[in-house]
Amino acid sequence: MKQKTALFTIILMALVFGVGVAWAQSAQAEFETGDVANQLYENGRYAAATQAYEQLIARGMANSAVYYNLGNAYMQQGEIGQAILNYKRAQALAPRDPDIAANLALARAQTVDRFDGGAPDDLVGIFNTAVQANLTFNQLALLALGLWFALGIGIIVYRQMRGGRGKTAVALATALTGVLFVISAFSLGSRIYDANNFPPAVIVAEEVNVTSGPGEQYTVQFALHDGAEVGLLETRGQWAKLALPGGETTGWVPASAVESLN
């Protein structure tokens, strides 16, 4: 009986491990040298370096370092919006990198627009922010799945055990796993929801008027400036509908003035 349980557990673990390995392999990519781009940057030729980084990204070498360096190249040219956009792209891939966080903070400090109530005050919001600051989307997705497997295994082991202190320990561990699972699954769900309904975007024009509808004939409500971080709700022709943080204030800008992170 015990042997069967052990076999079952091993199969489950092998499955989880196999999936992990497969993903690790898919992340392998051909390497294109970025020395030239970095050299241009170091020589102070930021416009040329920008082009070189963009080319590397277009050729598929899109990792956090390229986006970060591109962000720096834009910073050096005073293009705060593009800098923030690329720092955020870099941060999504390497959320724990202190350099990215530092430069993003510098770029944000130079933006004109300030939005109130940016930081969440509820428990879920705080937790979401903490998770986002430490895990990439894929890491979170795999963590939630891993906890789900652990929960399943915990339940099976608990049911299989005959009682005693061991069983109590397994019950506690399984309960803890369950709590962690619920939190991670909730965080994952809210990230998927945000990505689909409120995809992050950045204003990349020096100043742009936000109108009440998709066209210049509509009333100008207010203006946004380079580097303002917004949510992209909808694109219609040459116009894009934005939402300010919080999601309550919305308006339209020319699509060329805003760039989505994804």
């Binding site: 990519a29 020395d35 370092a65 350099d99 430069n103 400090a109 994952l188």
Partner: peptide, 29 residues
């Protein structure tokens, strides 16, 4: 108005990183 911060940026901007292989993996979801 971020005039002061422009200057700090010039000093405080962290240096670029060496580029390595690897590209974004597709979202697992």
């Amino acid at each position: 108005g971020g005039e002061e911060t422009v200057m700090e940026t010039a000093v405080a901007l962290k240096a670029i990183k060496p580029l390595a292989e690897g590209k974004i993996s597709q979202p697992v979801t």
